[in-house]
Design a protein around this nucleic acid. Structure first.
Length: 191
DNA sequence: AGTACGATTAGCT
DNA sequence: GCTAATCGTACTC
C-alpha cells in the first residue's frame, strides 16, 4: 500500500531533499503494529557546515553519513534521546536530513502508548519525540530506507507551502537558513 | 584515563 | 523562562 521512495530520491542535493520530504509519509511496521505520519519539519546538514556531525571527518558515530544515500542515520544524544536522519547526496559526502516533526496519521493508539502521552501535538512534534512514537531505535542505524520495515513514501498531496528558518538547538552554523517546515501546520516542534 | 558536552525533553517557576 | 536528567562520543593529556 505504501511504496518506499527509491534511492534516487535521496541521491540528490540535500537541501532539495529536505524540502521535498515535507509532505512525505514516514512509515514503520513492526510486531507492535504500523505507524504512519506526514513529515512536516526537516533540517539539512551539509558538507562544510560546522553544525554537521560529519564536518570534522569520519568517526565511528557519523560513518553512516558517509555511506550510500537512503540509509537511516540514528544517533544518541543528551544521554537519553535518539534522533532520526536520512542520508542524502552521495557516498563519501557526509550529508543528511534530520526529521524534526511528523503529523500523526495512523497507529495513533500505538504512538500514545509508546510516548505515554495523549495529546496529538505531543506525540511527534520534536526529533526525539517522533523517534519514540515510531518505535525507532539505535538498531535502525544504517538500515536501508528503500527496502525495509522503516521507510518513507511519496507525498499523498500536492507540494506544501514551505517556511524556511534557521536550525534549532545548534551553536555553530546557527545563522544558516536550513530548517524547513510546512506553513501553518500544527505539529511543528517550535515556532 | 579524564573530561566536556550535545541536531532534546519534561517539569517546574 | 530555567534546568535536571543522563551517557556515548570525541578530544585532550
Amino acid at each position: 500500500m505504501y511504496q518506499p521512495l527509491p534511492e534516487a530520491f535521496y541521491a540528490r542535493d540535500t537541501v532539495l531533499v529536505a524540502r521535498e520530504l515535507l509532505g512525505a509519509l514516514l512509515v514503520h511496521i513492526n510486531d507492535e503494529g504500523i505507524t504512519v505520519g506526514k513529515i512536516v519539519e526537516t533540517e539539512a546538514y551539509l558538507q562544510g557546515d560546522p553544525a554537521c556531525h560529519a564536518a570534522r571527518g569520519m568517526t565511528p558515530r557519523n560513518s553512516v553519513m558517509f555511506g550510500p544515500p537512503g540509509r537511516a542515520y540514528v544517533y544518541f544524544t543528551y544521554g537519553l534521546h535518539y534522533c532520526f536522519n536520512v542520508v542524502t547526496a552521495a557516498a563519501g559526502i557526509g550529508e543528511a536530513v534530520l526529521i524534526r516533526a511528523v503529523e500523526p496519521l495512523a497507529g495513533i493508539h500505538l504512538m500514545k502508548k509508546r510516548r505515554g502521552r495523549e495529546r496529538l501535538t505531543e506525540l511527534c512534534a520534536g526529533p526525539a519525540r517522533l523517534v519514540q512514537a515510531f518505535g525507532i531505535t539505535k538498531q535502525h542505524n544504517n538500515t536501508d530506507l528503500t527496502n525495509g520495515p522503516l521507510f518513507i513514501a511519496a507525498a499523498a498531496a500536492p507540494p506544501p507551502q514551505i517556511h524556511v528558518t534557521t536550525r534549532i538547538g545548534i551553536k555553530e552554523g546557527a545563522d544558516l537558513p536550513l530548517r524547513f517546515y510546512i506553513k501553518g501546520n500544527k505539529f511543528i516542534s517550535k515556532k
